[in-house]
Nucleic acid binder design. Structure first.
Lengths: 218, 218
DNA sequence: TTATTTATGATAGTTTTACTATCATTTTAA
DNA sequence: TTAAAATGATAGTAAAACTATCATAAATAA
């Protein structure tokens, strides 16, 4: 994790891990706007000042958990595509990972990936939609997202080196995987998906669109 | 405009119009988080209480200007596709309108569409990324966006009635048109576009992708 | 034209947020 | 075992996000 994101590394102490764990729960429960360090302090049974020793402000904390999520997704992507030997399969697997319903990974005891995924869906964009994107970018706060996007773009270029928009397409796949899930849950008329098991899934929408776009003719 | 968005219709008075006009300027200048009714009151040379007589809170004001923007975009779409007689041309024109660099429309004297477009790019998602989306949706606050999306989805279905994801594709086009422009300006490595005049534009990216996805084979 | 409603201005007050500061105490590491 | 580091407890400040009151000005209806 980027060390500039925190004042004290939350991984290194019990309190730090409780801060991360309870932040994820609390942000998901009340939303990022209503989330305050005071409320979080109550949850972790510490004080406001105690939380401020770990994170400068709540936006940094959001960046931390969002970065954690993207790093984790890239790790999963590497792990699951590692043994695949052609670009087509790698792209398909990547889309499946990104569009899938995330389940909690018990290997990480203080982070609930399922809830974290919900947060990234509904609060993730707020990590970069600020007046200080430029500084945050300079501080490399968006590196995990960029790395993931670049990796997928790499697979796209490997599949079709002539395709002109590998980065934009990769970023769009990642964005749409989350936004379509958000719309499906909250503004379903903006999508063609229902919660019921259907063959019209975010995954097949993205897969169809991607391969149509990058098919060797293009 | 949806009457539930405001307490007093800002169109009907000088102060109301100044509130809208200066909100657009001020939100663009300092960002939605730092934007307060007190600062706005200073700009319009009125008082905080004065602004609160028009809008319940700043989120309603954001919804108001964002809704205004989508209504305006749909109007432009209708106007410019009206004389076209085939779906392909309508889709191409729609994408061009959505991806284009918006210029100020002098017909609307107190609204600067160019700045408004910037706001929708960097703050627009905050209008629905809240814990009260469901209520806001019930109050029909997202109708202008949905109408625009449904119209584009209609053109897509007219072009290829067998295409399975017209709504998701339409929504994605609208979202990507804005997010790709945001990334181009702020996190350019996530895209394949440069500010320089190039044939790799958001417009051609979206057009290529759209027609690849909906070509009659699919 | 006057009476009355309605909009605005001026001011004040409350609760919550987003911090910063201080000092005592506990825990950990050398 | 001692010093350093982390935590807890408490207090305080400035600004944000409202709500309330009352006087005055402008618009409108009788």
């Amino acid at each position: 994790m980027n060390e500039k994101l925190f004042l004290r590394n939350p991984e290194d102490s019990e309190l730090g891990r409780k801060i991360i764990s309870n932040s994820i729960q609390l942000i998901n429960k009340i939303g990022f706007e209503a989330f305050t360090f005071k409320k979080l302090a109550t949850e972790v049974q510490s004080t406001e000042a105690g939380v401020y020793r770990y994170f400068e402000n709540k936006h940094r904390l959001l960046l931390y958990i969002v970065d954690w999520y993207w790093s984790w997704q890239e790790y999963r992507l590497i792990f699951h595509t590692h043994n695949l030997n052609n670009a087509e399969e790698k792209i398909k697997k990547s889309i499946r990972i990104l569009a899938a319903q995330v389940e909690d990974d018990i290997a990480t005891d203080y982070i609930n990936e399922k809830i974290l995924c919900e947060i990234v869906m509904s609060e993730g964009a707020k990590s970069f939609l600020t007046k200080h994107v430029a500084e945050d970018n300079k501080a490399k706060f968006f590196k995990p997202y960029k790395d993931l996007s670049a990796r997928l773009a790499g697979y796209i270029s490997a599949y079709n080196p002539k395709y002109k928009y590998p980065h934009s397409l990769a970023t769009s796949i990642i964005e749409m995987a989350h936004s379509q899930k958000f719309f499906m849950q909250n503004l379903p008329s903006l999508t063609d998906f229902t919660n019921a098991k259907s063959n019209r899934t975010v995954n097949s929408f993205l897969e169809d669109m991607t391969f149509a776009a990058i098919s060797p003719g293009n």
